Amino acid sequence: MIRQLTYHPVFLRTGVAIRQLLLRFALSLTLVFTTLFFTNTTVAYYRNFYQIRETGQSMTMIVQRTERTLVGKGTQKSRAKLFRYQAVFQFRNQERTMPVSKGLYESLKPGDPVMVLYGAEQDGFIPANDPADHRHLITPLIFWVVFVVTLLVPIPRGF
């Protein structure tokens, strides 16, 4: 008797369909905002990099030290480790860091001079001869691919 009062096959089908539609909408909205966030971050990086490249003031800085930090959670068994390389120097009585390429990192030693470009508007430094770090493109490209694929997947009948 209780089963007859609580069970109704039409309610269950439409209730599940509505929940699936709401879940799909929420996940799509999250995916859109995440994709836009990473795209905006990447565009800002390249905009700042190329503005400093074009209008930056050339300077020579003395390297105090170099730093290598592991990107992400690397395991000891993992062979493919990604590192972020930086050079540390003094500028206007402040310790400043600048991203450098692996090649420049390996050649720099404390006390070595390095040519940099300083962007006053961005208050940032880039090495004078290093290219942009194209690893910044990977994350937004992955999210754009996932976003496009989810747009191409048809909504099942019954919605």
Rank of each mutant, 00 (worst) to 15 (best):
T6Q: 14
L137N: 12
T55S: 13
T60S: 10
L29G: 10
V114A: 15
F147T: 07
T39I: 12
L29A: 10
K73Y: 11
A17E: 10
N93Y: 04
K109Y: 02
V145G: 09
Q4E: 11
L70E: 12
D130V: 06
I2G: 14
N129Q: 11
L70I: 09
A132D: 06
Y118T: 01
G15L: 09
L31C: 07
I142V: 11
T69M: 05
L5I: 14
P127C: 09
R65M: 06
K102R: 15
P113Y: 09
D133E: 10
L36A: 13
R79F: 07
V100R: 03
F89E: 02
G74I: 02
I126V: 13
P9T: 01
D123C: 04
K102A: 15
K77V: 08
F11P: 00
L31S: 05
L104A: 03
P140L: 01
T39A: 14
V153N: 05
F91D: 13
G56L: 04
E106L: 14
G72M: 04
D123G: 05
F38K: 06
V114K: 14
S58P: 05
F33P: 03
I62W: 03
V32C: 09
I2A: 15
V43W: 15
I52R: 04
Y105N: 07
F11G: 07
R3C: 08
T41G: 09
Y118S: 05
Q90N: 14
V149H: 05
I62M: 07
G72T: 03
N48E: 15
R135S: 12
T6G: 07
T66S: 13
A120G: 04
V88W: 01
W144Y: 08
R47N: 13
L29D: 05
P140G: 01
E95P: 00
G15N: 10
P110L: 01
I2Q: 14
T39M: 11
S58G: 05
I2D: 12
T14L: 06
G119L: 01
L12F: 12
R53S: 11
G15Y: 03
V149P: 07
L21C: 10
E54S: 12
N48F: 01
V100M: 06
I138A: 15
V10H: 08
F91E: 05
V145P: 00
R157L: 14
M1Q: 10
V32Q: 07
T39H: 04
Q86F: 08
I18Q: 03
K102P: 01
F38Y: 13
D123V: 07
R92G: 00
T55L: 08
L21M: 12
R92C: 01
D130F: 02
I155C: 04
I52K: 11
R92Q: 08
R84N: 07
F83G: 00
L31G: 00
E54F: 08
M61K: 15
F38H: 07
R47T: 15
M1H: 13
V116R: 05
L108K: 05
Q86D: 03
Q51I: 01
L70V: 14
P156K: 09
R92E: 14
M1P: 09
V88S: 02
F159D: 08
E121N: 14
Y85K: 03
Y118D: 02
R24E: 04
E95K: 12
R65N: 11
T139L: 15
F37Y: 14
Q94S: 11
G124H: 07
